[in-house]
Amino acid sequence: MQWHKYILTFVITAAIFVTAFFIANKFDSQRVADIRATQEAVSINILSLETQFDLLGSLSCSTISDNPVLSDELNTLAARLSVAEENLGHDNAEVVSLKKQYSLLEIKDYLLMQEISDKCAKFKPVYILYFYSNQGDCADCAKMGDVFTYLRQTYPGLRVYSFDYHLDLSALRTLIALRKINESKGLPAFAVNTKAPVYGFKTLQEMQKLIPELKTLATSTPIQ
């Protein structure tokens, strides 16, 4: 018996496993770095627009397009954050930190958009504040997320701001208080524009009835 060969093989096999683990970790770190870089870019863009707003007192409404802020970038971030959360776990410190940053960017985008819509009559945004939980206390949140993802893809002009209800972030807590979102009524919860919050899962068809404003938005793909 050549025991050394059995041991050598074990060492090589274990080394391959360890290498695979490290490469996978490297990719995860790269993902986190990628999200951070995108968030920084979004942050700079928001800051730039805010500064522009402050400088001019009121931005010329004629220069504002249908999507004045960063809906695409935020949507991309949401998809990437979701992958990172799936790979690293929702309670991973890095993921929680990224989510906080993302939520802050969403709130800033939301505020800026409201400011623009107040000053420019031609700009009539349709937006949804969506509150979910992934702590096992919201069985319908994944399905609701699917509906919102589909709506986002179908109506590029629709702005969906999604927030982890349990995220420990004071700005988020204030937003929750301002929009009178009550967890005890059950998650998922969402508020369309300035309307009162709606609780519980809603199908795509129910959502389309709940948001008649969707008809005013252009679609990216035919509606089925």
């Binding site: 290498t19 695979a20 683990f21 490469i23 990437r80 992958v83 790979n87």
Partner: peptide, 19 residues
């Protein structure tokens, strides 16, 4: 357009299977 490296499965198991 979503198929970029970010969305590829790069978990440990993928690399072990590749080996």
């Amino acid at each position: 357009e979503k198929i970029d490296w970010f969305f590829l499965n790069t978990g440990t198991m993928s690399f072990v299977i590749a080996s």
